[in-house]
């Protein structure tokens, strides 16, 4: 009974004025904020903040702010009861779990199977085999200096 009563209380009764607020100002402000943040994203991409990882994290942080604005304003989470926000945030929790545990795995493999970085700037850790320039040898039969590696990789990809 309580569930039904609560549902009834939160719902406008017959004859009651229904207030559908006009949020146009919010939407206009939001789209302008998103434009500004897009500009900031492009500008931030031109700056080196120290390392590849830091640059990536800053770009993702700005994107997260933009995504938050879209979810709060355009997707109405700001004005809603908590349930939809809980569903949304729970997915982000599982994404974080998924990504962090994969990183823990990959980033600690070097302790078990040491390998030297195959490319400059690559952090130590699990290293895949060196990659070819081409996967498919260029047409015309002109064997490039990487032709052998290319054939090998092509063969791998085919299986």
């Amino acid at each position: 009974m309580s569930v039904e009563n609560e549902a009834m209380e939160s719902i406008p009764h017959h004859g009651e004025e229904v207030h559908t607020h006009n949020h146009t100002k919010w939407y206009v402000a939001n789209i302008l904020a998103l434009f500004v943040l897009t500009g900031i994203t492009v500008l931030a991409a031109g700056i080196n903040f120290g390392s590849n990882t830091v640059n990536l994290m800053i770009a993702m942080a700005i994107a997260t702010v933009k995504a938050g604005l879209v979810a709060l304003i355009f997707m109405h989470l700001l004005w809603e009861k908590g349930m939809n926000a809980v569903i949304f945030l729970s997915s982000l929790f599982f994404v974080a779990l998924f990504m962090s545990f994969t990183f823990f795995d990959v980033e600690t493999r070097a302790k078990i199977e040491p390998a030297t970085p195959s490319e400059p700037g690559v952090s130590a850790g699990y290293q895949p085999a060196p990659l070819p320039l081409y996967v498919v040898a260029p047409k015309g039969g002109a064997a490039s200096e990487h032709g052998e590696a290319a054939k090998a990789a092509g063969g791998q990809a085919a299986h």
Binding site: N52, L56, N84, I87, V95, M99, T102, E119, P120, L131
Partner: peptide, 28 residues
């Protein structure tokens, strides 16, 4: 919203694959 959650999880796999490859081959 539950359907959107499945969409987020679908794309999260792709984002993870991107992060893995990008941190391993930044020059490329």
């Amino acid at each position: 919203w539950l359907f959107l959650v499945t969409e987020i999880l679908l794309f999260s796999g792709l984002f993870l694959a991107y992060f893995m490859l990008q941190t391993r081959h930044p020059q490329a």
